[in-house]
Design a protein around this nucleic acid. Structure first.
Length: 201
DNA sequence: TTCCCGATTGTA
DNA sequence: ACAATCGGGAAC
């Protein structure tokens, strides 16, 4: 059964905490000159402005301004001196929250993603936030602050409804604060979910 | 203007 | 277990 056509808009209007599990199963589509890239989101994390682990915890800055935009905008940040991470902003304008896309299952444009990633290992193409952005060909913060669109990145509703039993909530990865709250969501048993990282110093 | 460190990844 | 690598942002 095909989900409602307004699924995506409805999800993006919600708070990050509510939207994060609902983005699982949604498809990311990027049109490039060499063809389309399409992936299914399998792992997400929610960040909001009263959250010590969030970039917006200490208020609006030039970098995090996109997170304060309305749902449907993009937030891309650069981290560890070498990786880009892609977020989808949710909720209303003025509230700094977003959903980090942590992992996705390659569906289309595999060769393009292999080229972007420099590996042919299917399970390594987008099984982590840095990898996911790289697979999509995101090598700078150009998309940060832009809206989802055909020219940037598109988001489509799940092909099939995701049973709520298939969604697992767990602590977020790689953060130092608020390590206990289960705001990471992933599809149970999915092979393209990121490998759990070791403890943070 | 300095300095610490991160919503990570790949390699040893 | 650890290096790579650099910009954001708090502190000085």
């Amino acid at each position: 059964m095909k989900p409602d056509i307004n699924y995506v808009n409805d999800v993006l209007a919600k708070t990050a905490l509510l939207a994060a599990p609902l983005l699982l199963g949604c498809e990311l589509i990027r049109h490039t000159l060499d063809g389309d890239i399409r992936l299914k989101i399998v792992e997400t994390e929610a960040y909001h402005q009263d959250d010590p682990a969030s970039h917006t915890y200490r208020g609006l800055t030039k970098r995090t301004a996109p997170m304060f935009k309305s749902g449907g905008h993009l937030y891309v940040y650069f981290t560890y001196g070498m990786h880009y991470c892609l977020n989808i902003v949710t909720g209303q304008k003025g509230i700094g929250e977003a959903v980090l896309l942590r992992a996705a299952e390659p569906l289309e444009g595999i060769e393009l993603m292999e080229h972007n990633r420099g590996t042919k290992n299917l399970h390594q193409l987008a099984s982590g936030p840095g990898k996911l952005a790289q697979a999509l060909g995101i090598f700078n913060t150009e998309l940060s602050g832009r809206k989802l669109s055909k020219n940037s990145l598109q988001l489509a509703a799940p092909q099939l409804t995701i049973p709520s039993d298939d969604i697992i909530a767990s602590p977020r990865i790689g953060i130092r604060h608020a390590t206990e709250v289960p705001w990471r969501f992933y599809l149970k048993g999915n092979e393209f979910v990121s490998k759990y990282q070791k403890t943070v110093r």
